[in-house]
């Protein structure tokens, strides 16, 4: 076991203490270049994000909608790799105490080497790894190797998940469980499903770890609504969209910081 502090648990405890839920933000590593994406992640932290997801681009992102697909294409054109995302995470770690989660697809991680990747995570101060195309059944050895290094592995659950699968994911989860709000790909949506509250409650009841909800959350009002029913809220595409709107790095960072601050305020009860 690693002796590093449990920043994930600390984030949820702090949110509980202030009477609100955790804000998780997503930025694609290397979009449109490494230095800019680093400043965007730090702007999220400055805006009040508790957990910073950093995306690792993949050529064939089947779980992502158009906004994050486009971000991944920009990042790949800039030459972003698993190695550069680990280096990026290390730089972010030096400048913020917020928890960091790397999110990506399993093939680039396999090509880099699963153990080598997890060593890199531990060394860079990465707290958790989220791989949407690695369900618990296929993650047995990866999870064990991550636990050995003190890195959390976050599994996803969906509105279609059966009680048996909810149980399996909750048992395998470390850090937190990521509940996908809608059957679909990532991307902001105008409305969230009416039965979201009941579905999330069922998962929270079963889970030992906190449950965050993501996919489709793009406004402070949606974040507030989801914050009432979950331990945390993930906002991705809406932030990536604001980065893609362009401008000087400072202007983009300010735009992101302000947006994240508005989300953060909406989550304080």
């Amino acid at each position: 076991m690693s002796a590093s502090p449990d920043r994930i648990q600390a984030a949820f405890s702090a949110a509980a203490k202030r009477g609100g839920s955790v804000l998780v933000t997503y930025v694609m590593g290397g979009d449109p270049d490494l230095a800019t994406s680093r400043e965007m992640a730090l702007a999220c932290a400055a805006g009040g994000a508790d957990i910073l997801e950093i995306g690792m681009p993949f050529s064939d992102p089947i779980a992502d909608g158009k906004t994050i697909q486009a971000a991944g294409e920009r990042a790949l054109r800039a030459g972003t790799t698993v190695a550069s995302c680990l280096a990026l995470a290390a730089e972010v770690r030096r400048r913020t105490p917020a928890a960091i989660a790397l999110m990506g697809y399993v093939n680039p991680v396999m090509a880099y080497g699963e153990e080598r990747f997890l060593d890199g995570c531990a060394a860079s101060g990465v707290d958790a790894v989220i791989l949407p195309d690695l369900p618990p059944e296929e993650a047995v050895s990866f999870r064990a190797a991550a636990v050995e290094r003190g890195v959390k592995v976050v599994f996803l659950l969906a509105p279609t998940s059966t009680p048996a699968r909810i149980a399996a994911a909750c048992d395998a989860a470390t850090g937190f469980v990521y509940f996908v709000s809608v059957a679909g790909v990532t991307g902001a949506r105008t409305s969230l499903p009416a039965d979201l509250g009941a579905k999330v409650a069922a998962v929270r009841k079963r889970s030992r770890v906190p449950v965050v909800v993501g996919f489709g959350v793009g406004t402070p009002a949606q974040a507030r609504a989801v914050g009432r029913i979950a331990d945390g809220v993930v906002v991705g595409s809406a932030i990536v969209q604001r980065i893609a709107e362009g401008g000087a790095r400072k202007a983009r960072a300010e735009r992101v910081r302000r947006f994240v601050a508005s989300l953060s305020r909406s989550l304080r009860r």
Binding site: A63, L157, P159, T160, R165
Partner: peptide, 14 residues
Amino acid sequence: GGRFVPETLVPALD
């Protein structure tokens, strides 16, 4: 082989 897909699809594959 195996199943490396987003969770949403796993129940449909089952």
